[in-house]
Design a protein around this nucleic acid. Structure first.
Lengths: 223, 223
DNA sequence: CCAAAAGTGTTGATGATACACCCATGT
DNA sequence: ACATGGGTGTATCATCAACACTTTTGG
């Protein structure tokens, strides 16, 4: 059977919360096309490899990161998106805890975190892919327990709230947020430990619980 | 540059509401592999064609249907999903109004509607793809105006409610549903016309309005 | 008149927001 | 003592489920 040959790649929108910014992992391209421009990390899918496996492998290669969460985002296959040949890319979204710096991996020694608000003029159609990934992350925080993927294995309610505030760019009431998340059964698993902090009352430490969905959802509407 | 060659296809989960069932469009395979089994309609992406364009073209070829809504669903690319060669398929979800029957198209003269509850043992990994499409449709009815895509250009509130009841498999209160949808600004656009009906008070006819999102959402939870 | 389906009003429960207030720690 | 941030109580407001009720047609 004759069929048109395509190259298939995976690209990764890797997001984290650093300080006051939602950041994406970008690599500087070392070859044409788009030489010198920033791009999302990614690479070819191997002949015997599933799409999810390819995404996991690329993420491990580009960064030594703990992966909080990895899911398929969408596929992009405009005929002219790569000037060399016909390429369809299956983009994936990864949410990871804040790491000191992405450890230099094999593919991309110069991978670095860039606030998504400043990530512009990326190679290929990666502006669009990044925007879709950010929008997906914002939407999913509303009704899933995904925000915990941005935190380390143990975290306080205030750290979790910080994630929501940074991703949504909106202040939340600490009191109501606390009641909401501690009142959702299965969301948070108290460790019994507390943190020593710089100048306030110590906070309870939690691990993420078994709940995946948030019911009822947290809303980001202005109202 | 060397890269592993892949075939890329689009597959379509085409859903409609017929009577008391949510139905999917299936075609009987006329060749190996999976000869004689049911499958989702689909085909190869052409060399100069976008993914969305390929989905639109296939949908037009397989059916002469009015397309209420078409969106990308997900991609599937397990190495062994097609025994002949490495194929990655980009599945799309289409919601269409109830049509008397899919008109025999070029590719699939025997395309037909099958209730999703009875669609089993499909070719390739299409059981999984269909299940993902149905779940996506169910979820999106909650917070978008997508249900109108299942209706014709003009419809009554009761017809729209019927869509929700069939897709969710759950009875809704007619009074509360009516208030909810007519009270959401931009969702429904009254035509001023009414229907003549079999034995009750005539209903107002509506067209779908400009609103895409439902705020607040309609919930399908049991509570 | 009666049946059937459209559409309205009202009520009690539930959840969200806003904010006053108390608790535990470092300096 | 007091600043800082963690955590609780409570009033007000919006929304929802439930259901009695009225309206408009066909037989």
């Amino acid at each position: 059977m004759a069929f048109p040959p395509f190259a298939v790649t995976v690209d990764l929108v890797v997001l984290t919360v650093r300080g006051d910014d939602l950041c994406a992992l970008l690599v500087r391209r070392g070859e044409e096309p788009f030489l010198g421009r920033d791009a999302l990390p990614g690479g070819f899918v191997r002949p015997d490899e599933d799409l999810a496996a390819a995404a996991t492998r690329e993420l491990a290669e580009e960064t030594g990161l703990d992966v909080g969460h990895l899911e398929q985002l969408a596929s992009y296959g405009a005929p002219d998106r790569d000037p060399r040949q016909r390429v369809v890319t299956v983009a994936h979204l990864a949410l990871v805890p804040d790491q000191p710096a992405p450890t230099a991996g094999t593919d991309a020694a110069d991978a670095r975190w860039v606030p998504v608000a400043q990530a512009r003029e990326l190679a290929f159609d990666h502006d669009r892919v990044l925007a879709d990934g950010v929008e997906r992350a914002r939407a999913k925080l509303e009704y899933t327990a995904l925000a915990t993927a941005f935190c380390g294995p143990e975290f306080t309610v205030a750290q979790l709230r910080r994630v929501y505030e940074v991703v949504w760019g909106r202040a939340l009431d600490p009191r109501n947020f606390h009641r909401k998340v501690t009142g959702t059964p299965g969301l948070l698993d108290p460790t019994g430990e507390t943190t020593t902090r710089d100048g306030g009352r110590p906070a309870q430490l939690y691990r993420r619980g078994p709940a995946e969905q948030l019911h009822p959802p947290l809303l980001r509407a202005d109202t």
